[in-house]
Design a protein around this nucleic acid. Structure first.
Lengths: 298, 298
DNA sequence: GTAATAGTGTCTTTCAGACAGTATGAC
DNA sequence: GTCATACTGTCTGAAAGACACTATTAC
């Protein structure tokens, strides 16, 4: 029925296990999708409560941290609209959780988010896919633009061309350019199929989530939502590196989080395969002390 | 009809004139409201296009810069729901415009946003309303909380108590605490009526917008959306100060924007009441050169 | 002892913050 | 000349970035 609207909820639920950033998906067809739900105004007082309930019902999970990301409402973003259904508008959410416990559904799966965005993982050096498939295509797209300065600036900034620095937060910008130049399977006309595709526009929602969480850890202590109450500094660093897709300098990282008052030692030690490590916990007082307490470091 | 949803669009359109940050409102009742529209899926391909069309229809304005803010959907946020209507979910937008031109509607008015948030303007020193009405109330609210550490940290961080620094971006957090303690007229039970109220939850949407724009100017060159193509550095500084509600050091500001490659001199000069000032223009190349090119300085 | 991981010290460069000064116009 | 505004130079201290070093366990 034209003129009608269906309001959905698309949560991106993230968990980091052994330095692998995982996203919760439902794999019941060819392409994984987010565990989407729909908003029923009769049942929930707020949108966030509705998202929490939906996550619980879909995958039997109680997320601690949940924040709204963005509302997506492009025409025909859902094929059910093409088939004569209402306009499917959906509110994306970002959820963080400490461990990948599940309710036990068969088709629910935690997937390494770098399967969907292989060009975003710089922890083992510059991703191969960039030079093999991406850089030339983006360069050609810029050249096609001719005098279009906007396109040139957009492309060089997003992909770090011409000596521009890599911006780890520009995940969505990069995905959108790849979509525009037909380098991902979701694009209506495409020549490449970089990264694993997702259903509908869910990879776009995931890109939004990755960009948001990468930005957020730098000025809000959300990283601790992904860790147990007590952890070693190396564990903390590896978790930050997993989200950011980059390596950090060890001693500088330690100085930053410890001298910065973000964490405090518990006095206890934990056995490793070498010298035992001291364990630390988050220090909530830092929120009032510093204007933006996060783990932003290069 | 329960179970039904109406999707609205609430734009916060901002313009700075002579160092006064203005927000576009409709004043047709006791409380000013945002120039809201509703989303008709049959007419627009994307939500952003719908927002642009709605702004044009409501106030005859073409905004250059427009970004989505947040989607609000609390039960009974609109009294029409209380009267038996559908759930009114609305998507907030932030629009920036260079000059306060209008289509000529009688009830449309540009209002200084510090009328709604007098505690946010620190340009002439610490706002009086803070010490006269706010600090003690917030302190009492923290004390009532007793052992509630979350409440203490939230309150001290938001209002800069106990020596904590003032965080110019925490506009929404401050408004929400004031709402919770009944210090604004919009709260169902209130003892104070700090700042000018707005209709519905529009002051909350405006708070979201102010917080967003204050954060954004620090890492994206959006400030230039509010200025003519060519401007003096003093004009630029006063515009930044208007949004941030704070004073900046002149020579440091100049060094930051000029040495940082954010602006470049045009070679032309403009008469003032003293020595003529050189005019500058935005330098778009900076977007590719620096990871987050903005005017963030204290 | 070696291997492995935990943790410390310090040098250099950059830049924010503060402040004092000079330049160029109107009158 | 004075007044007003535009613009420049430089000192200081904090912190980012890079790197070399020491410590404590298992074996």
């Amino acid at each position: 029925m034209p003129g009608e609207i269906a309001l959905g909820l698309d949560p991106v639920i993230v968990c980091v296990v052994d330095a692998v950033p995982l996203v919760l998906t439902v794999v019941d067809g060819e392409r994984p999708r987010l565990p989407a739900g729909s908003f029923d105004p009769a049942r929930d007082r707020t949108l966030e409560l509705a998202a929490r309930r939906s996550i619980d019902e879909q995958v039997g999970l109680n997320v601690g941290y949940l924040e709204q990301l963005y509302t997506f409402g492009d025409r025909f973003r859902d094929p059910r609209e093409t088939a004569g259904g209402p306009r499917y508008v959906t509110i994306g959410y970002l959820g963080l959780i400490g461990s990948p416990a599940l309710g036990g559904q068969a088709d629910v799966e935690w997937i390494d988010w770098y399967q969907f965005f292989p060009w975003e993982d710089w922890r083992r050096g510059r991703p191969l896919v960039l030079d093999k498939n991406v850089v030339d295509r983006v360069g050609a797209w810029i050249a096609e633009g001719g005098t279009d300065a906007g396109r040139r600036i957009r492309g060089t900034a997003a992909f770090g061309l011409d000596g521009a620095p890599w911006n780890d937060e520009a995940v969505l910008e990069r995905y959108e350019i790849l979509y525009e130049i037909g380098a991902v399977a979701e694009a209506p006309v495409h020549r490449d199929v970089l990264g694993r595709p997702m259903a509908l526009d869910h990879r776009r929602i995931l890109a939004t989530a990755i960009g948001r969480v990468r930005a957020k850890i730098k000025y809000r202590p959300v990283i601790f939502e992904l860790l147990p109450p007590s952890f070693t500094l190396w564990q903390l660093q590896r978790t930050v590196e997993a989200l950011g897709g980059m390596r950090l300098h060890k001693s500088n990282f330690r100085r930053f989080v410890e001298d910065g008052g973000l964490v405090v030692g518990t006095g206890e030690r934990r056995a490793t395969s070498g010298r035992p490590a001291e364990t630390f916990r988050f220090r909530p007082e830092v929120i009032a002390e510093r204007p933006d307490p996060g783990v932003g470091i290069r």
